[in-house]
Design a protein around this nucleic acid. Structure first.
Lengths: 218, 218
DNA sequence: ACAAAAGTGTTTTTCTTACACCCATGC
DNA sequence: GCATGGGTGTAAGAAAAACACTTTTGT
C-alpha cells in the first residue's frame, strides 16, 4: 500500500429519549481548553482500528454515559475542515433512541438529558448534527417502526399516540391514529391490560417486529 | 491533543447517467494485486487533509474519470473492518448524477459506463454501495427534484417521463404523470419547441429551481 | 392523406380527515 | 353514581388511478 494520508475518525451520537412527556437528548460536558470551557455537546469519540462505526457508538455511549442497548442508525458524516478546532476530525453521526425506562449507570463524562426545546449552544458542529438528527427522527417515525425504541416493550395505544405527538410536536386525532396504526399490522394487541387509576383499563399492545421495517406506500 | 488513533478515509462515488435509454453507472478499473486482478469498482479515493468529503468526490471524479459538474449527495459511510483487504479504510459513499450529454475527457483510470442491469462483481464492498445508491436514487426521485440532474436543462415532458420510467424501471400513465408534475410547480414551460421527426413538436420544459427541493407532502 | 408523437378531462376508486358518544373501572 | 381515560364508526372531501381521442407536424 502506497503512502496514504490519514485522518482522525470519530462518531457522535444524538441520543433521544422521552423524559417527563418531552423529547430529550443526551448531552455530555465538554471541556477542551482553550476552545470550549464548560460547554455541552453530544456524546462521541474516536473509532478504534478494531471496530466499525456502529460498535464505536455503542462503546462511547456505554463508557461515557453509562447507557447500553440503544437503537442506532447512521445519520450523516460531517467532514468540514474546521469542525474541530484541535485538528482534522471527520465524524460519523448517529441517531440513537433510548427507552423511557432506561437503566443508566455513571460513565466517564458528566451527562444530562436536555429537552430539545431548550438546547444550549453546543460545542463543535453539534448543533448542526442535532438538527439533522431531529429532522431525520421526525421524518422516519412516519414510515418506519422505529418509534418502538422510545417505548417499553408493551404499551397502550394512548402511550404510542402520545409519543408520536411529543416527537412531532403536534396533536393527532385519536380514532384516525388507531385506525392507521392497526391497519399497518406493525402493532398488535397482547392479552394483557394496564390498570391505571380510576378509568377503564387499556389493552397493552406491542410491535410485531423488533427489526426496522419500512411501511410500504405501494 | 492527546494520542489519537487514525484511519484512512476515502470517498466512493456511485455516479449514474442515462445512456441509450438505460440507467448506467460509472465504473473504473481496479488492479490491486494480489487482491483484485482486473476488476471493476466505483470511482473513489482518499480525502486530503485540505478538503472535505464533497470536494474529494469532485476531485476524484475529475482526475480519474475526466468528468466534472455532477450532482452529488452523501449516501452512507461504510466502515467494516475488512472492507479493503489492504488495510483499514473508512469510505464515505456518494450518490452522483450526470447528465446524458456529459462532456467527458480522459482521466487516470480506465472507465466505462455500465448498465445497472448488467453489473459485474465489483471490488471491495462496492456492490453493497451501489445497491444502496440505487435504492436511494429510486426513492429520492419520488419526493425531490433531483431527476433534473440526469436531464439537459430543457426537455420535453415525454423525456422527463421516460427518465422516470428508466430509473424506476416501470411504466407510468402519461396523463397522470403530466398532471402531477405540472401541479408541483417544479417544472415550468419555456416558449421553445422541439421538432423531432414527423410528428407534432413538443413544448420544452425546465425545472423552476436548480437547487434540491423536497416536495411538500403536508 | 397518413404516420408519429404531443397533448388534453372525466369518472371511479381509494385514502384522508373531521367528528361525538358509550364503556369499564376506582373511589 | 360520578369522574377518568379507553375504545369505537361514519360521512364528506381530497387525492390517485384508470382510461381514449384529437392535434400538429413531416413526408
Amino acid at each position: 500500500m502506497k503512502k496514504l494520508r490519514f485522518a482522525v475518525v470519530a462518531v457522535d451520537a444524538a441520543c433521544f429519549r422521552i423524559v417527563a412527556g418531552d423529547l430529550h437528548v443526551l448531552l455530555g460536558r465538554v471541556n477542551v481548553e482553550p476552545h470550549y470551557k464548560n460547554r455541552w455537546g453530544l456524546i462521541g469519540g474516536l473509532i478504534l482500528s478494531s471496530e466499525n462505526a456502529d460498535v464505536a457508538v455503542e462503546r462511547h455511549l456505554r463508557n461515557k454515559a453509562g447507557i447500553g442497548r440503544v437503537y442506532k442508525e447512521q445519520l450523516y458524516t460531517f467532514s468540514s475542515i474546521g469542525r474541530d478546532p484541535r485538528g482534522r476530525v471527520i465524524s460519523v453521526a448517529y441517531l440513537c433512541l433510548a427507552p423511557e425506562a432506561l437503566t443508566e449507570s455513571v460513565g466517564d463524562v458528566e451527562t444530562r438529558w436536555c429537552s430539545v426545546r431548550d438546547i444550549p449552544a453546543l460545542a463543535y458542529d453539534h448543533d448542526e448534527i442535532l438538527n439533522s438528527a431531529l429532522e431525520r427522527l421526525r421524518s422516519r417515525i412516519g414510515y418506519t417502526n422505529i418509534i418502538q425504541r422510545l417505548l417499553p416493550k408493551e404499551f397502550t395505544l394512548t402511550d404510542l399516540q402520545t409519543t408520536y405527538e411529543i416527537v412531532l410536536h403536534k396533536k393527532l386525532d385519536k380514532r384516525n391514529f388507531r385506525k392507521k396504526v392497526l391497519e399497518t399490522k406493525l402493532v398488535v394487541t397482547t392479552d394483557k391490560k394496564e390498570r391505571k387509576g380510576a378509568s377503564r383499563p387499556a389493552i397493552l399492545h406491542k410491535f410485531s417486529s423488533r427489526t426496522v421495517v419500512n411501511i410500504e406506500i405501494l
